[in-house]
């Protein structure tokens, strides 16, 4: 226990760097994922067959292949045509992946808003995009917050896969330090604690947001 404690405190600075990278990867990839998710959710509800098929195809490919394969294809595969930096290969790979799940979450939330809301807005002279932006999406977003929070947690943990293309984010740091010291276990415990803390903070934040959005209930 004493050994673990000294490893935990002794590795603090290195892990902080890893944490910083993990946070940057997560935030960047999730922001891109939200844009991708919104875009494909719109395609899915567009009622235009070819757009729906494009969205289905995207979701099928993402859900049908492991994330690590997607990241490797982006980083090693595309490197033959275009050398993409590790950070961006990982961010885009993660965003591409989360985007599919977020698209489904948003689509479900939009479709859960009753038709009466759209009709009321249209009857006031609001056009389709105004109705979507001002009436449907704000309500859908509220309903999607718990699922989105869940997806963000998954996204943060998935960012550990970025270590496989050489990024020294949290998991990469623990792996490197473990192999340098031939003593993996304390470092894996250490990194687990960091992830638990991030997820705890995010969970609390999502709960707070839910409470704040519940004022109209």
């Amino acid at each position: 226990m004493g050994e673990f404690f000294s490893i935990f405190t002794g590795s603090f600075d290195v892990f902080m760097e890893g944490l910083w990278l993990t946070l940057r990867l997560s935030v960047v990839s999730l922001l891109i994922a939200i844009v991708i998710g919104l875009f494909f959710a719109m395609l899915k509800i567009s009622r235009i067959k070819v757009l729906e098929i494009i969205a289905d195809l995207y979701i099928w490919i993402v859900r049908g292949t492991p994330l690590i394969v997607q990241i490797f294809i982006l980083f090693y595969g595309l490197a033959e045509i275009w050398l993409i930096p590790e950070f961006w290969a990982a961010s885009i790979g993660l965003a591409f992946h989360s985007g599919a799940y977020i698209a489904e979450i948003i689509r479900g939330a939009i479709q859960s808003i009753t038709k009466g809301q759209t009709e009321a807005a249209r009857s006031l002279g609001m056009n389709r995009s105004l109705t979507m932006r001002r009436i449907v999406l704000p309500q859908a977003f509220r309903r999607a917050v718990p699922s989105l929070g869940n997806q963000f947690i998954i996204g943060i943990k998935d960012s550990s896969l970025a270590s496989f293309i050489g990024l020294q984010e949290l998991f990469g740091v623990s792996n490197t330090m473990g192999s340098n010291s031939f003593n993996y276990l304390p470092y894996f415990f250490t990194v687990a604690i960091y992830y638990l803390l991030i997820v705890l903070i995010l969970t609390i934040a999502v709960n707070q947001l839910e409470k704040k959005l519940a004022v109209s209930d």
């Binding site: 009466g116 009321a120 009857s123 109209s216």
Partner: peptide, 22 residues
């Protein structure tokens, strides 16, 4: 039709108020 609907207001059986707005 958005222009036409501005001239023709509608009240619904189930109110359809926007729940996220005061």
């Amino acid at each position: 039709l958005n222009k036409v609907r501005q001239k023709v207001g509608m009240v619904f059986q189930h109110f359809n108020l926007f729940p996220h707005k005061t």
